[in-house]
Every structure is written in C-alpha cells, then in structure tokens.
C-alpha cells in the first residue's frame, strides 16, 4: 500500500522541529553552563552568594576555570524565592479560581456565560509586563499602605508575618501578581471540567434532597479533583517561569533569603534578566555561564512540574 509516503515523510520532518528545538535548548544550555558547573559545583544550589569578583583584578584559576578574584556564585536564595512565590501564588489562586469556575459553570445563566467567562479569560491575554507595570504602580503602594499593615496587625504573632514590612516590594506582592496571572488558566480548565460533569450526577444529588450548593461541593467538585490538581500544577509551572511581572514587583533581592513574607526576593527567571547587564561586564564570561546554569536548572524544574501536570490531566481524561 503506497499512499504518498513522501508526503508523510515531509510532514514528519517538519514536525520533528519540536523535539529538535527541545534538544537544542538542552544541548546549548549544557554546553554554555558547563564552565559554570565546573567552577561552582553542587555548592551552587545552596549558597546565597552572587559575587562576580573583582573585575579589575587579574584572572585566577579555580577548579580549572579562569575567573576574576573573589568570584562566588550560589542560587539558594533564588530557588527559595522562586518556589515560595510560586507556591504562595498557587495557594492564593486555587480557591479563588475553583470558586469562580464553579460560579461560572453552575450559576451564571447560559446566555451570559460567554460574556462572564470573557471577563476572567481576557485576563490571561494581558501581557506579563503590563501586569508588572500595574503591580509596580498600583499594587505595590496598595499592599504597602493597606494590606501589609493589616496583616501585621492581625497575624503579627505568627512567624513570617511579623514586621518589618519593607516598602511593598517583595514575596507576597509577587505572589499576588502571579496569582492574578495564573487564576484565569485554572479557571478556564476547571470550568470546562465542571461543565462536562454529567447532569444525571447533579440530578441524583438533588433527588436525595441536597441543595444545589451541596451537590456542587460534595459531588461535582470532588469529581473533578484530578483536573483541579492538574490545572493547579500546570499553573505552578507557569508561575515558576514567570519573568517580567515578578522582576518589577519582587524587590530583586541579591544574595539573601527572605526573612518574612514581606521581604524582597528574586526568582530564577527574573534574576536572569536583572543580571544581564552586569554579566556582560564580566570579562571572564563566568557570570554569563552561571546565568545559563540558572536557566538550565529552571528548565529542569519546569519540565518536571509540567510533565507531572500533563500526566495528571491525561489520567483525568479517562
């Protein structure tokens, strides 16, 4: 059976661009970050240092790599900043978006549904740098004047909620911006899943005398929990890799861990952008290699998170 096999080969070749791009990303990142890996070792993952060294000094050889004297790199603070901001964002976004999606699917009349869901889903179309600008100009002062004092007043006895609150740039503000960015993604996925729950399931609950709300909370939402978890992890992956919005509101901490929920942080993604200029000044090129190593680690983390999320969503489909 010969049916235009050249056509199939052509299409396959074109589609191979996808694995090739992925492969190219891994290979180029590995090659470019290799000197940094040799120089930094495992210490890189836990140390809280970002020191390019004395750029006017003569290069010294450490671990077989030429670096300016005093150069020392570690991204412990970036890993903590990335994970904590993304997890807090998910914690904030998940209840809000599950509630909003259930409201959209169950309460909004059919003819208003498109308009109503548009209000949430358009949020996903706003460019991330615009979220950053809004966060910088509107949210940072708002958090600083109203939310942070309120939080310290109410929750001030709990560790991590104690003052000082800083200037509004920091972990919680970044998480709020991230939460706003990932909420529409979760909402649209969960809403679709809720709409696909068979009507008979709701009718069975109603026939037992449950109210519509009880049916929703006790049968419909537990029924789509895999979708909720999958969408949540997918959104987590998004939050981990978000760059511009975080860059503009995080306070760009350099070389220290957040001491409370208000303190400045940096995430791996935002740090790569904020350090570009100074890395270009490093004659030895080690700073650039170290940034490439951050990108490689970020790639690995998001890869794991995404594969886990896709796996869960795939399971939920059956």
């Amino acid at each position: 059976m010969k049916r235009n096999t050249w056509f199939r080969w052509g299409v396959t070749a074109c589609a191979s661009i996808i694995p090739l791009v992925l492969l190219a990303i891994v290979i180029f990142l590995l090659i470019d970050s290799w000197p940094a890996m040799r120089f930094n070792g495992w210490h890189f993952l836990v140390s809280n240092q970002w020191n390019l060294g004395n750029e006017y000094g003569d290069l010294v050889t450490v671990n077989g790599q030429q670096v300016p004297p005093g150069a020392d790199y570690g991204i412990g603070f970036l890993i903590v900043g990335t994970l904590s901001s993304a997890f807090i964002a998910l914690l904030l976004a998940l209840p809000v978006s599950v509630a909003a999606s259930a409201f959209l699917a169950e309460m909004v009349p059919k003819r208003l549904q498109n308009t109503a869901s548009l209000m949430v889903e358009l949020l996903a179309g706003v460019p991330s740098v615009v979220f950053g600008l809004w966060g910088l100009i509107v949210l940072v002062p708002f958090m600083n004047h109203y939310i942070y004092p309120g939080l310290t007043h109410v929750l001030g006895d709990i560790p991590f909620f104690q003052p000082p609150t800083g200037a509004g740039y920091g972990l919680l503000t970044s998480s709020v911006v991230l939460a706003v960015m990932i909420a529409p993604l979760i909402t649209s996925t969960v809403r679709g899943a809720i709409e696909n729950v068979p009507m008979v399931q709701r009718e069975a609950g109603l026939a037992l005398g449950a109210t519509r709300f009880e049916v929703l909370v006790k049968t419909v939402i537990p029924g789509v929990r895999r979708v909720i978890i999958g969408a949540g992890i997918l959104a987590l992956g998004r939050a981990l890799g978000e760059t511009m919005a975080v860059l503009m509101v995080s306070g760009n901490a350099l070389g220290y861990l957040p001491h409370n929920i208000y303190s400045p942080i940096s995430t791996m993604a935002s740090f790569i952008v904020s350090q570009l200029d100074s890395a270009l000044q490093d004659a030895s090129g080690m700073a650039e290699h170290a940034l490439a190593e951050i990108a490689l680690i970020l790639f690995a983390i998001t890869l794991i998170v995404n594969v886990a999320a896709r796996g869960l969503l795939w399971l939920a489909r059956d």
């Binding site: 992925l22 890799g241 760059t243 490439a292």
Partner: peptide, 22 residues
C-alpha cells in the same frame, strides 16, 4: 510529539531567551 509540544509550551520564555542568546 504532541506531548513534547505541551512540554515546549511549558518552557519558561526566559529559558528560550537564554537559548537564543547562547
């Protein structure tokens, strides 16, 4: 490949930027 598409969609844009830079 369809799965790999999803993986590539999930790659943070700054990682792609770093790749393009290198």
């Amino acid at each position: 490949f369809s799965f790999l598409c999803d993986v590539l969609i999930g790659v943070p844009s700054i990682v792609l930027g770093m790749f393009g830079y290198i």
